[in-house]
Design a protein around this nucleic acid. Structure first.
Length: 273
DNA sequence: CCAGTATCCTGCAGGC
DNA sequence: TGCCTGCAGGATACTG
């Protein structure tokens, strides 16, 4: 589900609502996520901690508990963080509940269980196997210079590379599809066959679509919502994602569907080369 | 190292 | 109505 704009939307909402709040209880079920969830161990690390900062690395959220460490959260495909009053009923597939001193609860809900919740002791972040390998943030200023040469030396389909979190951390299927449509590049095109100028254009379009989506609170397709329950409104701005068979908004040809790197991709045969 | 595929899991839409 | 299939916003462990 959540890509950079959605995760950033969640981060901002948490920072607004939870900064300075103390965790008084942690409960959950020992369920199998990407890694097994251990609520008892998380309780040992988290109870008594004050939520100091809320950071994002790619699609990962880091909830800093004073100086003791951070709760690392990845939402996978179907993960959500919700902020509720204690007495509100739990949604199905609620795996972890942090109760705050004011009796509100931060809840982690994830039906498909592709997500991740893990405690990172202070100082361990730099050695974490996945975090350490993440590429730069797509919104970084120098990306237009740094990304194109890294793409140009690879023979894989350009879309697969945009989705590779070690190359670039935060882009998923929606925004990769949108950026390629905006840049007029076919998703299956081998990156090495695209000129540096067009790869720069792609990078510019990628940054633009991500920035616009952040200002819209992300894309709600089915069930994405910020922790306070707000839906993202960027879905109405999608030009390619999910529009297979519908006319291209630039050249009117019907969009096609292709599978690239195992992911569904909508693209226009008229204006994406 | 690189590219491509299979796999984890539930829910939902569509076809019959 | 119910059953079946395929597909879904992601990451990773494999294979060649």
């Amino acid at each position: 589900m959540p890509e950079l704009p959605e995760v950033e939307t969640v981060r901002r909402a948490l920072a607004l609502c939870l900064t300075g709040r103390r965790v008084v209880a942690v409960e959950g079920e020992a369920v199998r996520l990407r890694q097994p969830l251990d609520p008892a161990a998380l309780a040992m690390s988290l109870v008594g901690r004050t939520m100091a900062r809320f950071r994002r690395r790619g699609k990962y959220l880091l909830l800093d508990g004073d100086n003791h460490g951070s709760l690392l959260v990845h939402l996978g495909m179907s993960g959500r963080l919700t902020l509720d009053r204690r007495q509100q009923p739990l949604l199905p597939h609620t795996h972890l509940v942090l109760t705050l001193e004011d009796q509100r609860q931060l809840r982690y809900v994830d039906p498909r269980r592709f997500g991740l919740v893990e405690w990172l002791p202070a100082g361990s972040e730099a050695h974490h196997p996945t975090l350490a390998g993440l590429g730069p943030d797509p919104l970084d200023d120098d990306l237009v210079e740094s990304l194109p040469p890294r793409l140009r030396c690879r023979r894989a389909p350009v879309k697969s590379l945009l989705l590779d979190q070690r190359l670039l951390a935060g882009v998923g299927n929606i925004y990769a599809t949108e950026a390629l449509w905006r840049a007029g590049i076919r998703p299956s095109r081998a990156a090495s066959t695209i000129s540096l100028a067009r790869l720069r254009r792609l990078t510019v379009e990628l940054q633009a679509v991500l920035a616009e989506a952040v200002t819209q609170g992300g894309t709600t397709l089915r069930d994405f919502a910020s922790p306070s329950g707000d839906f993202g409104s960027f879905a109405v701005s999608l030009q390619a994602y999910g529009r297979e068979g519908e006319p291209c908004r630039r050249c009117s040809r019907p969009l096609r569907r292709a599978v690239v790197g195992g992911r569904s991709s909508a693209w226009c045969p008229g204006c994406q080369r």
